[in-house]
Structure formats: C-alpha cells, structure tokens
C-alpha cells in the first residue's frame, strides 16, 4: 500500500514541477520539455494506481494499456511541437534561441 502512495506522490511532484516550468519559462523548448515532464508524472500516477501487491491479485491492465499508448503518442507530439518551434524560429524575426529573451527570464545557454 505504501508503494502506491510513494509512487503516486512522486508522480504528483513531477507533474507540478513540469507545470511550474510550463508557466515560469518563456522559451518554447523549455515549455515542450515541461509538458514532457508533466506527462511523465501522469504516467507515473497511472501506473502506480494500477499496482497491486502479489498477494492481492492481478494488476489492473487498463491503465497499463493507456500508459503504453500514451508514451508513444507523447513522443510524437513532442516531435511535432519541436518542428513547429523550429518553424517559428525560422520564419519570425524574433530569435527564440537568443540568450536573453524578451521577458529576460531566460538564463544564457550554450
């Protein structure tokens, strides 16, 4: 029982770390990463909820199936978002990858 709670709370924290970054960071790459972290948290909560100790009985396969497809879908969504971000970078005059963005919240990278 404690295992369920441990992993569920880990998932909750991971989700909200991503949520915080999604709002606080203005760089599109960071937003995409933040959404990925959030989805990881959701998967962790779902799988933790499906866990049963061996004595209780079988695992619940429905959340497992959902997470399984969700992982592949999140990868493809990330790829599409990255391409869109690159397209925005190419077509706009504004350089998104500049060390200091408009809000001035981005630290210098690379």
């Amino acid at each position: 029982m404690i295992t369920n709670f441990l992993y569920s709370f880990c998932g909750l924290f991971v989700f909200f770390m991503g949520f915080f970054a999604l709002i606080a960071c203005s760089h599109p790459l960071r937003k995409i990463l933040a959404v990925n972290v959030m989805s990881t948290g959701v998967f962790l909560i779902l799988v933790a909820g499906a866990y049963r100790p061996a004595s209780v009985g079988d695992i619940d396969p429905v959340p497992h199936a959902m997470v399984l497809t969700g992982i592949v879908v999140s990868v493809s969504v990330t790829a599409l978002a990255l391409i869109l971000a690159c397209r925005v970078q190419e077509t706009s005059n504004l350089s998104l990858l500049r060390p200091k963005s408009i809000n001035g919240r981005e630290e210098s990278e690379d």
Binding site: L12, I23, D60, V62
Partner: peptide, 30 residues
C-alpha cells in the same frame, strides 16, 4: 506562482490520500 502550485500539490495530494487504494480495479473483469 510557486505558492499557487504548492497549494495545488497539497490539494491534489489530499485527494490522492483519500482515494481508495487497493481496490481490485478492472483486473478481475479482464
């Protein structure tokens, strides 16, 4: 924003605690 997110964590954590853990789920039906 940090306080807002912290409140959300606490709220959802409380909801997680109140969830009935260890219910059989759909394992038996499957």
């Amino acid at each position: 924003l940090f306080f807002f997110v912290a409140c959300l964590v606490l709220w959802l954590g409380a909801i997680l605690c109140s969830l009935p853990m260890g219910v059989p789920g759909l394992g038996k039906e499957v």
